Computed example of a mutant assay.
Amino acid sequence: MHDFDHTQRFLFDDSDVRGELVGLGQSYQHVLAKHDYPQPVAQLLGELLAAASLLIGTLKFDGLLVLQARSAGAVPLLMVECSSDGELRGIARYHAEQIGADAGLVELMPEGVLAMTIEPKQGQRYQGIVDLDGATLAECLTNYFATSEQLPTRFWLCADGQRARGLLLQQLPADRLKEAEARAASWQHLATLADTLSAEELLGLDNETLLHRLYHQEELRLFEPRPLCFRCSCSRERSARALVSLGPADAELLLDEHGGQVVIDCQFCNQRYAFDAADVAQLFAGGGSEAPSDTRH
């Protein structure tokens, strides 16, 4: 049985290293179904979805993780959000005429930057930004952690437009291995074994089989999986707040410019929220956004 739409943590008993596996199936398909992405873009978006799912398990907070890659190339934007509740959404912007069938990250996002933003429900927002300086998203994320003060972290990511999978290894603070040389050797050994993993194995093997193939000589514990799902956080209420933030004069101007109805589209899920003159008047009178007006379509 394949392991899709959940993450699963594992821990090496004789080394200060933890790992995480992720598989995305239906949740990945929900993201792709909202837009007609070319295959190379769908693959990159799947890899970034897998990366966000892996990272949310390493961060002990209640809130939202946002990964955003930007460039001046054929794919100017990749953006993925994953909540601490395992809710995913993602989007890509692209220029189809510039995308070759076998294009990879370097061709699609030259001179790009990668931003990771942590938005806790309570507490301070954090953002880190690095260059997209690897041949793959996995390399770029690995380099991101290498340039920060975080613990050494490695990524292996793969997506084929149907499934997205990922593996993360992260070194933990010294506990079982106290000497720096022994810690470094253990980390290198486990990462080197993971480097032998093929895309076909990562996409095709269930978690237990995959870990046995890589680490059958190691003692490790595999924990219970945590579910993931696609869910967009857009709502009529949030769209109404965006409209109110414009102020009554600009909102009235939008109504005039759009024939008496303002339509706000969610870029992630294509949901549309329409507001007519009666709705807008109700919003600025403090009446809320939910009660339908007589002229709503």
Rank of each mutant, 00 (worst) to 15 (best):
F10E: 06
A274V: 01
Q188G: 09
A50Q: 06
L169E: 01
A159K: 07
S84Y: 02
S235D: 10
F155V: 10
L214G: 12
S53L: 03
L54R: 08
G104P: 13
R183K: 14
Q127S: 14
L193S: 11
A240D: 08
A50G: 13
E87Y: 00
E97Y: 03
A291V: 14
L151E: 10
E290A: 13
A138W: 03
D250W: 01
R165A: 12
M79H: 08
H35L: 02
Y215M: 04
R18M: 04
Q261A: 10
L157W: 09
A249M: 02
D265H: 09
L210P: 10
P248G: 01
L169T: 03
E219N: 08
R221P: 00
Q267W: 02
L49W: 01
D36L: 11
R236A: 07
R272P: 00
V80R: 06
A101L: 06
E290S: 12
P173W: 15
L67V: 05
D276N: 14
L44Y: 13
D250K: 08
Q261V: 14
S239A: 15
L77T: 13
Q282V: 00
F275V: 03
L59R: 10
L32F: 15
P227F: 00
Y37M: 13
D256L: 04
L243F: 03
W187M: 12
L132E: 12
P173F: 14
G204D: 07
T196L: 03
V66F: 00
L177F: 01
S27P: 00
G112R: 11
L105Y: 11
A249S: 04
H2N: 10
A240P: 09
A92Q: 07
A164S: 08
D36S: 15
G286V: 11
S198K: 11
A101I: 03
G286W: 08
T196G: 04
L45T: 13
P76H: 12
R125W: 09
D195P: 05
C266Q: 05
R183P: 14
H2E: 12
G128F: 04
R70Y: 05
F10S: 07
S15I: 05
D133H: 14
N143E: 11
Q150K: 13
T142A: 06
L203T: 07
A278M: 02
L48G: 07
E201D: 15
G134R: 07
E139M: 11
I91M: 04
V113W: 13
V66T: 09
R9E: 06
D276S: 05
E224Q: 09
E81G: 13
